[in-house]
């Protein structure tokens, strides 16, 4: 049912939850209430628990790597105290953000940002980026497939790095060419440097 809330309410409640998760001391009993609240929000939005768990599995290693440097560098208890603090707060705010991602489609987020008076240039770039992100992803996927198809044995580490960097470079060239084509197409459709927005259909009302 969270899905039908007005977009601004979703954003504000997510901000409130993250604020709560990062400001309450970890040792305080209130952190349990915050955890329950976030869990409740996930249930309310019918986000499968297995999905959250899977995302957490990808999220934890980098956080762990960052947090483990504290006990390694701080002797005694205080390092581990910080470690626990960071892991708990990170996990809670990550779950909240995950909730927001799942109840708020990206175009709704864009519309909300526009209502919050974010500069038009930034939003135009953002929406273009979002549009072509997946195109470039597919392109990258094809290039990866092509590379895999041409590798018959495991290359050396240097060769892998070199080819991966070339992949980035080639993708860059293709992206810039595509930007030129897009610009041409925009000019052909009367682009004058001002962005115009189609009013969003009111999906926030049932």
């Amino acid at each position: 049912m969270c899905h039908r809330w007005p977009p601004l309410a979703k954003l504000l409640s997510a901000i409130a939850m993250i604020l709560a998760a990062t400001c309450v001391p970890v040792a305080h009993p209130l952190i349990g209430i915050v955890t329950c609240g976030i869990f409740f929000a996930h249930t309310l939005a019918r986000i499968p628990l297995a999905y959250v768990a899977r995302r957490l599995l990808f999220f934890w290693p980098p956080l762990f790597l960052m947090a483990i440097s504290l006990p390694l560098s701080q002797a005694g208890q205080k390092g581990w105290l910080l470690f626990v603090t960071i892991v708990v707060r990170g996990t809670l705010s990550f779950s909240t953000a995950l909730w927001l991602v799942n109840v708020m489609p990206f175009d709704q987020l864009l519309a909300t940002l526009r209502r919050l008076r974010i500069p038009d240039v930034l939003l135009a770039i953002l929406s273009l980026m979002y549009r072509f992100l997946f195109v470039l992803w597919d392109e990258l996927d094809r290039m990866r497939t092509a590379r895999a198809a041409r590798l018959f044995r495991k290359p050396s580490l240097w060769a892998t790095w070199r080819s991966a960097a070339h992949l980035v470079g080639r993708l860059l060239i293709r992206a810039l060419d595509r930007a030129d084509r897009i610009h041409g197409a925009m000019l052909a459709r009367g682009w004058d440097g001002r962005s115009r927005w189609i009013e969003q259909p009111r999906e926030d009302r049932p």
């Binding site: 770039i125 980026m129 470039l136 860059l172």
Partner: peptide, 13 residues
């Protein structure tokens, strides 16, 4: 605008 948007998408990819 198209150039920057594309560059952002590129860095992301």
């Amino acid at each position: 605008i198209p150039l920057t948007g594309m560059m952002a998408a590129l860095v992301f990819a």
